[in-house]
Each structure stands twice: as structure tokens, then as C-alpha cells.
């Protein structure tokens, strides 16, 4: 077995339990369903928003209890999360497809599968393009054989972004970012030193993820303006934070 850097072990330890997230999300959907029974069947889009909202709760809890993040002041914690919530949300969806998904379908956090062709047939241009680019990214990460350890590192790389403006402790965030990159590089060299440039490819995938997340936020914001996103939740609060 390759030697795993201590930091990568720590990142893995911080990773939320997938089964717990699945149970929490299913419970939340059942509660919402009972509430909606009086108002008719909720749309698939509304259910997906609730899943995203529940995942956001788990992302915040992951960050709050994680190494390094705990050392930051509350204002810096909020700035970092406001800046990257949609990337972390997309990464959660994308990593699930890479690690456990099947071709042609979307594996949801609840363990259910949705046919991608079903989504395409109901989606407008923006969503179709988002799904397609998302699929391409899944494919790239699949070819790179990105594993659980690397996804755990990537999440921290996304969170500790020194480009976020007006951080009180910018230096700390910068030093953590450097440590994460170092740990990820060391890990990739141990596991796949024969694959030249794999680390650089991983970083390229990250910039594609960032660009996708901007599109996804714009899409959700439009849906919110047309009243299709359920109100009073974390998703809405995050959507408003940057605007």
C-alpha cells in the first residue's frame, strides 16, 4: 500500500459519513412530503433543491468540525463558505458519480438514480448544458481515477481559497492552501508517479468545477427569481450572500 501523508489521513477522517447524509436527507424529504400532501405533489426540481439544501447543511457541519477551519474566526469562516458553497455542492454530486455512479444516470444523495435522458427531456438550454459539462467533468475525473482520498483533499483545497477577499487571517488561509497542495501532490506522486502531469490535470478539473459552479449559481438564482426554489433555507441564504 502506498504511504499516505498524515494530512490526507486527517482529511479522510473529517469526511462526512455518506450513510448518515443519506438518512438525514431521506428523513427531510419525508417530512417535506407530509407537509406538501395538502398542497399536491412537489415538483422534482423542488425535491432536488431540498436535497441540495440538506447537503449544504452537511457541508457546513463538515467545515465547522474540520482541521484548520476550526482555527479561523467566524467572519473568515463565513467568507470562505460564501465563496465556495456551490463548488463544494457540485463536487459532492460529481464525486458520488465518479466513485459509485453508473453511466447514463445520476446517483442522488438518497441513493436513488435518475436517468440523464429523463433530465435532458425536461430541461431547458442552461440546465442541459450544465448537465452535459458536469458529465464531461465526471468522465475526466473517472479517467484520472480520482479516489476518495484525493476528493477529500480537493474539498479542502476549494474551501481554503486565498483569493477570497477581505479575509482577516489571509496568511493562515494561504499557508493551509500550500499544505493541502503539498499533501495532495505527495499523495498523487506516491500512488501514480508513472502518470506524468496527473496533479496538473486534477487542478485543471478544479478550475472547470469553479466555472460550472458559477453557471449553476446563476441558474439557481434565475429559478429563485421565478419562485421555483423553496424559500427560507440555507440554499437561498447562500444564493443571496454573493449578490
Amino acid at each position: 500500500a502506498p504511504r499516505m501523508p498524515q494530512l490526507v489521513k486527517e482529511f479522510l477522517r473529517c469526511d462526512p459519513d455518506e450513510l448518515q447524509l443519506r438518512t438525514q436527507t431521506t428523513t427531510r424529504l419525508l417530512q417535506e412530503h407530509a407537509r406538501w400532501e395538502k398542497h399536491g405533489e412537489p415538483s422534482t426540481f423542488r425535491l432536488l433543491c431540498l436535497m441540495a439544501d440538506q447537503t449544504l447543511f452537511s457541508i457546513v457541519e463538515w467545515a465547522r468540525t474540520s482541521i484548520f477551519f476550526k482555527q479561523l474566526k467566524l467572519n473568515d469562516q463565513m467568507k470562505l463558505l460564501h465563496s465556495c458553497w456551490s463548488e463544494l455542492l457540485l463536487l459532492d454530486i460529481i464525486s458520488r458519480q465518479v466513485l459509485c455512479g453508473k453511466e447514463g444516470s445520476l446517483l442522488l444523495v438518497t441513493g436513488q438514480e435518475m436517468g440523464l435522458s429523463d433530465i435532458d427531456s425536461h430541461a431547458g438550454l442552461t440546465l442541459t448544458s450544465l448537465v452535459q459539462r458536469g458529465q464531461e467533468l465526471v468522465e475526466k475525473l473517472h479517467i484520472l481515477k480520482v479516489d476518495r482520498q484525493e476528493f477529500a483533499c480537493i474539498k479542502f483545497l476549494i474551501l481554503f481559497n486565498p483569493d477570497v477577499t477581505l479575509l482577516e487571517d489571509h496568511q493562515f488561509v494561504e499557508s493551509v492552501q500550500a499544505q493541502i497542495e503539498g499533501a495532495l501532490l505527495e499523495y498523487t506522486l506516491c500512488t501514480s508517479s508513472h502518470l506524468l502531469g496527473r496533479f496538473a490535470h486534477l487542478l485543471l478539473c478544479l478550475s472547470e468545477l469553479r466555472s460550472l459552479s458559477t453557471l449553476a449559481e446563476d441558474y439557481l438564482y434565475c429559478k429563485h427569481l421565478s419562485g421555483e426554489v423553496p424559500c427560507n433555507n440555507l440554499l437561498i441564504e447562500m444564493l443571496h450572500a454573493k449578490r
Binding site: 465547522r64 469562516q77 463565513m78 433555507n233 440555507l234 441564504e237
Partner: peptide, 18 residues
């Protein structure tokens, strides 16, 4: 602004010991 981000602030700042 404070009020706008009330939920995130609460989630990050909640006291686990209570």
C-alpha cells in the same frame, strides 16, 4: 448583513455543549 446570513452564522457558531 448580519441578519441576511443568520442561518449560516448560527450553524457555525452553535455551541455543541448546550
Amino acid at each position: 448583513k448580519k441578519k441576511d446570513n443568520a442561518l449560516l452564522r448560527y450553524l457555525l457558531d452553535k455551541d455543541d455543549t448546550v
